[in-house]
Nucleic acid binder design. Structure first.
Lengths: 226, 226
DNA sequence: ACGTTAAAAATAAAGATATTATAAAGAAGC
DNA sequence: GCTTCTTTATAATATCTTTATTTTTAACGT
């Protein structure tokens, strides 16, 4: 979905300049030429706000404090005033970043992108999921799904799958797998790997009998088919 | 609760300088003098990371990319290299901010504060009341409801529920739960977690005998079913 | 090409180990 | 004195490892 960005600046040229280039990036743009307009448009719930500090009437700092009463999206200050004090004040009133004027378009875009990415990360947090053929491996929930069915793996089995899946198409010896999953200091027989691989294959095959997920490379080890 | 900040810089003087002043602010500090140390300490789940770019071995950019595989907390770059290109690269690899060296302590503190505030805003975004299957958990009022009936939980029990509920579908070891609920410095037996989990389950089961709310992942820990 | 051989891997099942659940008593806090 | 928390001991159970056996594979010589 398109992210919504609100631009607030009394200099129309600069607004136009920013809007054109951000629209070209695929963002949806809301424009306000002063603080009052900005507040009126808040209910449209922008995903990010770019704020000039020096504006007639309510200035950017005040506006920012006001906005923060209602909305928690990232706020980027843009200003020609760029002493340390200005930057700090911007952050204190609830801003998230401070870009000096004149700024390069590239830097503006990158910072906007970085902030939106962060928001996105936060909203999708805790879902570290790896897709592999018809399987989905959730490394935080310790779950593996085939379509919508949950496959039950034990701790060791899951750790082996996780390790292999994270390095697809790469062959690992039993010893390497053992070291990765059990830890360097523990010593044990490598046939236990064989056994676990067997169990894993059996469980997957029950749901997906046609594909091969873990293939054995004779004399070398095992690899995950990516 | 104290926020945990990890400082990564090969210049020990600078690290000490930052640590002292941040500890004075009440933050808990983790220190790493190179990227490898930083990665080793990642499991301690810092709330924010300050990263020098120029370090021997793996540099800050690479480290940042590596960290992003695992953790989504804010990452602040600190560097003497401060061309526009450097700043942009920092953001591209997954960073959230870029502070030029030499920096003022005040600006560092302010930026750290601003980022942590943002995280805080995100995590508490209007979710005082969390719905989970047939339960409603009010994290501010310390109350849990099933339909209209209030379930009575003790302090520790509630804190455990609250922590798990706020990270649904994510498995936590007993040690992790202990650390989150009791605090890092307190030491105790992890079997006490087992006992509390049992009590919690029993109380919930009394009202809702069919659903499973807390499931155990053998050899790993417990998780809240979301 | 074919069969032989030795090494490697797959299988099956029993034994050993480790983790979690339970119950109850003791300690700590209010 | 009552509730809550922690510890201890025990029971139940899931998982892991080992062993023995069979099957597969690649290499070799004929």
């Amino acid at each position: 979905m398109k992210s919504k960005i609100m631009l607030v600046d009394d200099e129309k040229d600069i607004v136009t300049f920013m809007r054109d280039s951000l629209e070209a990036e695929g963002y949806q743009i809301l424009v306000a030429y002063n603080s009052e307009e900005a507040l009126r448009q808040l209910p449209q719930q922008p995903d990010l706000i770019v704020l000039d500090i020096m504006m007639p009437g309510m200035d950017g700092y005040q506006l920012c404090e006001e906005i923060r009463q209602h909305v928690s999206c990232p706020i980027l200050f843009v200003s020609a005033r760029n002493t340390e004090h200005d930057r700090i004040k911007g952050l204190v009133v609830g801003g998230d970043d401070y870009i000096e004027k004149p700024f390069s378009l590239k830097e503006l875009k990158t910072r906007i992108f970085a902030h939106l990415r962060r928001e996105h990360r936060n909203s999708h947090k805790a879902y570290h999921r790896i897709h592999a053929k018809n399987l989905i491996i959730d490394t935080l929930a310790y779950e593996v799904f085939y379509q919508n069915e949950k496959l039950a793996f034990t701790y060791r089995e899951f750790e082996i799958i996780k390790f292999l899946v994270m390095h697809p198409n790469q062959v690992f010896s039993k010893e390497q797998i053992y070291e990765q999953v059990w830890g360097i200091d523990s010593l044990g027989d490598s046939t236990t790997i064989t056994e676990h691989i067997k169990k894993i294959r059996a469980k997957i095959q029950k749901y997906d009998p046609l594909s091969t997920y873990i293939s054995t490379v004779w004399g070398v080890g095992y690899k995950w088919e990516g």
